[in-house]
Amino acid sequence: MPKVLSAHLAATYAFLYLPIAVLIALSFNKAGLPTVWTGFSLEWYGKLAANPKILASGWNSLVVAVVSTVIATTIGTLLAVGVERSRHSAARDALLFAPMIIPDIVLAIALLSFFTLLKFSLGLSSIILAHVVFNIAFVCAVVRARLKSFDWSLVEASRDLGAGAFVTFWRITLPLILPAVIAAALLAFTLSIDEFIIAYFTAGAGQSSTTLPMQIYAMIRFGVTPEINAMATIVMLLSFVLVLSAQRLNRGRIPGS
């Protein structure tokens, strides 16, 4: 890799992690002020451990993000394959584009009105249903970008040799597009875990379906305390450990390459 590219990549990561470094530093901030440094303290980690609301809402967010990512990645990938293999349709493209541009507040109010109309009971399940809506669109867009330059003759060869649609998808198509599917899933997970307004409207009442962003925004009025920074610090740390251990386990076995 040329030096200038490596330097650019390093600079990009520095940019992405600059506020994260500040955020981690603030988790050790003595006073509860969100933007002023007042001295070192570990008390917010203690307070976090003793705050079941934040921990429970963090867990809820994780459930919503994981489940909606799995559903949206499955459905969105199949959708992308189907769309790219069939004739171009402007109406269908519009349908796949719409979830990305509909303002969150519109989807939020629309879904709540709709669920109320159907007497569908609200909870984590309704948040997941809602998150899948926009996640399908993002997953589908990423996978379609990959499929634009896909060599479909491989798929046809497989079918000609007698493999079924499922086997062909599982053995040929999926391995080839897997990096794009992983990228799409990462994108969906990221959108879901930090989404606030749609989750707020489609959540049931009470702590059992409060997600972390809902909990944090609700804290705004009386101050978002560094407990949240402490939580974020722990999440970052765990994620790093996970990524690095996956890296060690996965030596040289990157699918699709």
């Binding site: 990561y13 955020l23 603030l26 930090d194 962003p213 705004i220 978002v224 949240i228 974020a232």
Partner: peptide, 11 residues
């Protein structure tokens, strides 16, 4: 590249 965005937007 995406990890920083698993923290909360507000903080």
């Amino acid at each position: 590249a995406i990890l920083p965005f698993w923290t909360n937007y507000l903080i």
